[in-house]
């Protein structure tokens, strides 16, 4: 066995050892968040295959490189040249064709896994996800409910219909693995079957402006019975909302106002609603207004017209399409009621 061949064999053995070691290490490391969806099973399985491939390719390149660095380093003062080899066409074809085959296989696996992850189920429950800077709203059309918390029955295939009222957001629950952009003017679908009861968070994964990092919503995956109870209780509660203030508070929470306007005096993005009604506010054009019904109505419909000094025009301009006149009256009543 010549020196060349021996070198190659030794390096190959080390590659195998490092590959195995790397794969075991990556496998045992706790890399991913807990898994809580049926779709995530496929994704984690594929990711596991990727990690093994990564371990092999990493070992292949690094071992041969380190081997050359150690074994083929030049002795000090040695000015001679290495072996005069221009290349090896057979070898080049080999390491073109084998990766091509790997790519074909990985491409096939990619297609199959994508099919599994996006497959629809016959008994899907629809949840409409509406995102806005910087809040989430979840509508349950089948139950006739609206919520800022995402409550899901376990093992129930869900079809999320995701949209946005302003900029692009992204609906992502890391434990569910999958994510989908929320694009204004479009409805994008995402299918998730939650499989583990627990509390999670929706985390906006597309940069959406100032408070992007805080654009979160609570997710609760619960047993079917608990979900049904919740639906019943919510329906009853909504039916019982007989004052404009209570309806206004509901709108405050569900229509996104809560994302920017606090009730405790802290300034988030827009002015706080605490003691807002009846106060005198300076506007950025130097004039000032008394906050009354007219001003509130005008500011909801045309938010850019009269900006309070020190604030930016960041409020969505399409509330006129979303809210009815009664909604606006209810909201105004709620604002009136926020006092300390």
């Amino acid at each position: 066995m010549g020196v060349d061949v021996r070198h190659f064999v030794v390096a190959t053995i080390i590659v195998v050892l490092v590959t195995v070691a790397g794969a075991v290490l990556l496998d045992s490391a706790d890399l991913l968040p807990p898994l809580a969806s049926a779709q995530g099973v496929t994704i984690d399985w594929l990711f596991g295959i990727h990690l093994k491939l990564i371990a092999f390719l990493f070992a292949l390149v690094i071992v041969f490189m380190l081997f050359s660095i150690i074994v083929f380093r030049s002795k000090p003062g040695d000015l001679s040249a290495g072996k005069h080899i221009h290349g090896n066409t057979r070898l080049e074809i080999t390491w073109t064709v084998i990766p091509l085959i790997i790519v074909a296989v990985m491409g096939y696996i990619g297609v199959v896994t994508l099919r599994d992850v996006t497959a629809s189920a016959p008994d899907e429950m629809v949840v409409e996800v509406t995102s806005a800077q910087w809040s989430w709203r979840f509508d349950y059309p089948e139950q006739g409910l609206t919520s800022t918390e995402l409550l899901l029955p376990v093992n129930q295939p869900i079809r999320f219909e995701i949209t946005s009222t302003d900029v692009i957001h992204n609906f992502w629950v890391p434990e569910f693995r999958v994510k989908q952009d929320a694009v204004p003017g479009a409805v994008n679908l995402l299918r998730v079957t939650p499989t583990v009861v627990g509390k999670y968070k929706v985390r906006c994964a597309e940069l959406c402006g100032l408070r992007h990092s805080q654009m979160l919503a609570d997710v609760r995956v619960v047993e079917r019975s608990e979900f049904d109870n919740w639906v019943g209780a919510e329906t009853a509660r909504l039916a019982a909302l007989d004052t404009p203030e209570a309806r206004g508070e509901q709108l405050y929470e569900t229509q996104g106002c809560i994302g920017c306007h606090s009730l405790d005096g802290t300034v988030v993005v827009g002015p706080s609603w605490l003691n807002l009604f009846g106060s005198q506010e300076k506007l950025d054009d130097g004039t000032s207004v008394i906050v009354n019904e007219d001003y509130i109505r005008h500011s909801i419909l045309y938010p850019g017209d009269q900006i309070v000094k020190g604030f930016q025009n960041l409020m969505p301009a399409n509330f006129g399409e979303i809210l009815s006149e009664i909604d606006i009256k209810d909201l105004t009543a709620f604002i009136k009621s926020v006092k300390d």
């Binding site: 041969f64 083929f72 030049s74 790519v103 990619g110």
Partner: peptide, 28 residues
């Protein structure tokens, strides 16, 4: 996705050719 994975092939050719260049060289 397939086109993206295909990029690995010419990139791999580069990596392997670099290894081929180092193999049996006189490295400083």
């Amino acid at each position: 996705m397939v086109a993206t994975l295909l990029v690995a092939v010419p990139t791999g050719v580069k990596f392997f050719s670099w290894l081929g260049t180092m193999w049996q060289g006189k490295l400083t």
